[in-house]
Amino acid sequence: MEAAQTERDAAFRSYVVPELDVMFRVAMSLTRNKADAEDLVQDALVRAYRAIDRFDGRYPRAWLLTILRNAQINRTRRRRPELLHDPDTEMERLSSTKSGDEFDPEAVVIDPVFDASVRQALDALPKKFRRPVELVDLGGLSYQEAADDMGVPVGTVMSRLHRARKRMRDHLEQTGFGTREID
C-alpha cells in the first residue's frame, strides 16, 4: 500500500507538477478570472492525483488539459448563468490594480491599459478565432497541442490564429488605441 502511494506521488511530481503554469494559463482562458482559474486548477490537480495510477505516461499535457476541461464543464454545470463572465466587469478589473488581485509587477509597469485593450480585442473575436489565440498565446500550447485540443488539423489552427491576430491588431487601432498617449 505504501509502495503504491510512493509510486503515485512520484508519478504526480513527474507528470503533473511541471505543467502547473500551463494548467493555470489554460484555466485562465476557460474562466477569464484569476480566482476561478486557481480553483479550477486545484480541482483538476485533485482529479489528476486520483487518476494518475491509470495514466500511461504518454502526453501528460494533453491528459491534464482533458481533465481540466472536464473539471470546468462540471463546475459550469453547478453554477448559475449570472455568474458567467461579464466583459464590462472584466475590463474594469483588468484596468485596475487593486490589492488582493495583484498583477505581476512587470506587467503593470509595461502598460495595464494596453493589456486591457488587448483583452477587449480578444473578447471581440468570434469564438472559432478566439480559441486558438487563447490556447497558443494565453495557454502557451504548440500548434499541434492546440489542434488536438480543438479537434481540428494543425493547418486550421494556423490559419485561424494568424487571422485572429491580424483582426486583434486592426481592432486595437480602430478603437482608438493608436492615438492614445501614455507618460
Binding site: D9, F12, R13, V16, V17, L20, D21, F24, R25, V26, M28, S29, K34, E38, V41, Q42, L45, V46, Y49, L94, E102, F103, D104, A107, I110, F114, D115, V118, R119, L122, V133, D137, L138, G139, G140
Partner: peptide, 24 residues
C-alpha cells in the same frame, strides 16, 4: 500582452505549488 493575461502571479504560483506538494 496576451500571454500576460494568463500569467500566474508569484503568489498564485506558490499556492498552486504548495497545493500540489500537499497532494503528492
Amino acid at each position: 500582452a496576451i500571454s500576460r493575461l494568463g500569467q500566474p502571479d508569484t503568489d498564485t504560483r506558490q499556492r498552486l505549488q504548495e497545493f500540489a506538494d500537499h497532494l503528492a
